[in-house]
């Protein structure tokens, strides 16, 4: 007799547990306000990344097309993956030959966004930007030259 009671007890407790589970999903079904989906390309205007988000390395330029990079290669050394490549050149400042950058090459396809180059920079020339839409159709487009054409180093940065 006891086993028969247990048999039915089992059925009812099982059914009850199933009902409780259905209650949870039913709750969300009837509360569409709790939907968490963000419709990404549509909300591009309002989507704001956190300021510390590491998207890609950029070389800061001011309005006179001047940057702070001295071409010291500290970031190149700090980078674990060979993402950054500094191609230096010699320029003449006040009669002396000084090292400067010819091209600041950044291989986005190799970057792991570890952020080690940023603190390595002695002049705070580079920062991590918040951009994240890096998809391109050609791999070669991922290799970027960060210094803008015609840009030069700011005065007073050594």
């Amino acid at each position: 007799m006891k086993s028969i009671i247990n048999y039915f007890k089992e059925i009812f407790s099982g059914l009850k547990s199933l009902m409780q589970g259905m209650k949870v999903t039913g709750h969300y079904f009837t509360h569409p306000k709790e939907i968490i989906t963000q419709q990404y390309p549509e909300n591009r205007e309002t989507l704001k990344m956190f300021e510390r988000f590491r998207g890609e390395v950029v070389l800061l330029h001011d309005e006179n097309n001047e940057h702070k990079c001295t071409g010291c290669s500290a970031c190149e050394v700090a980078c674990p993956n060979g993402t950054i490549e500094i191609i230096p050149k010699r320029i003449e400042v006040e009669g002396r030959k000084v090292k400067a950058i010819d091209q600041f090459v950044y291989h986005l396809q190799m970057c792991t966004m570890c952020g080690l180059c940023i603190p390595a920079c002695p002049t705070d020339a580079i920062v991590m930007a918040n951009t994240f839409e890096h998809a391109v159709f050609d791999r070669s487009k991922l290799t970027k030259i960060l210094n803008k054409p015609g840009s030069k180093i700011m005065d007073g940065i050594k």
């Binding site: 990344m49 570890c114 991590m128």
Partner: peptide, 12 residues
């Protein structure tokens, strides 16, 4: 994580 560390998964 993203706000404090700068990345969501590989925070470093």
């Amino acid at each position: 994580f993203e706000e404090t560390c700068g990345a969501r998964l590989t925070m470093n």
